[in-house]
Write a protein that binds this DNA or RNA. Structure first.
Lengths: 119, 119
DNA sequence: TTGATGTATCAAATATTATTGATGTATGAT
DNA sequence: ATCATACATCAATAATATTTGATACATCAA
């Protein structure tokens, strides 16, 4: 369990996604981000926790559609949820985005090598 | 033309993808990243320019498949190409990844507001 | 306990993306 | 001029993801 947590924590930064497991997590994260509705949800949640009903109002989309996208985001670790009465509140888990940021940082550093020549 | 370039340059950071054009660019970039073969290609190119034949050897994948993914990456602005004789060399355009990094930075900053409570 | 509300989930239909094998095109070597 | 190489592109198929409308479930209020 502890090992798994640690793996998840380092999957981008340490291994540059060389293992299959790490790769899957990374891809799931990117896929989760790569969709307009989900990106809107993420940006909305960056202003704070919201229930599904809030998101429905903001976006004017069907409930089942929003729930579907929330599920994708949750499974990718981008958001977490908590129940309060009838409402379920979602919030960003910024650590996922942080790991993505670290991966990019690593790549950019790689590109600075004299041999690597990126744009 | 100049306006378009400027738009592309700022699409993540300035507008947080509020315009439709900007949003499409952002999604295209994320979609381009969200696929295992393409991610491998990106990481390979972070070590320097490669021709298709190099990538074929490294990955042991069919040529048409690699070309397909290179096209997706190119259209998303993640890589650029140049021809030299019979070979076409691809390299990373790190600016695309930089813009993604900036977007994340912005989101994370947003999350630090007292009202926003992210994980 | 009944009914309304907030949300998840499901199955079917649709849309999008990726793979495959074949063919086309340009380049350079002979 | 012919041929092999390096790559792009295409059409058909397969695989995945999304949308939609319906239904199910839990919570709360009356």
């Amino acid at each position: 369990m502890a090992i798994l947590v640690k793996l998840q924590h380092y999957y981008w930064t340490k291994q540059l996604m060389s293992s299959a497991v790490a790769n899957k997590k990374a891809i799931d994260l990117l896929k989760a981000l790569a969709e307009p509705i989900r990106l809107k949800i993420i940006e909305s949640l960056s202003n704070g926790e919201k229930c599904v009903c809030d998101l429905m109002q903001e976006t004017d989309l069907a409930q089942s559609k929003i729930s579907f996208h929330l599920k994708v985001l949750k499974e990718a670790g981008v958001i977490t949820d908590r129940q309060s009465g009838r409402w379920i509140y979602y919030k960003l888990d910024i650590r996922a985005l942080k790991s993505l940021q670290n991966w990019i940082k690593k790549l950019r550093k790689e590109c600075l090598n004299e041999t690597s020549s990126c744009e």
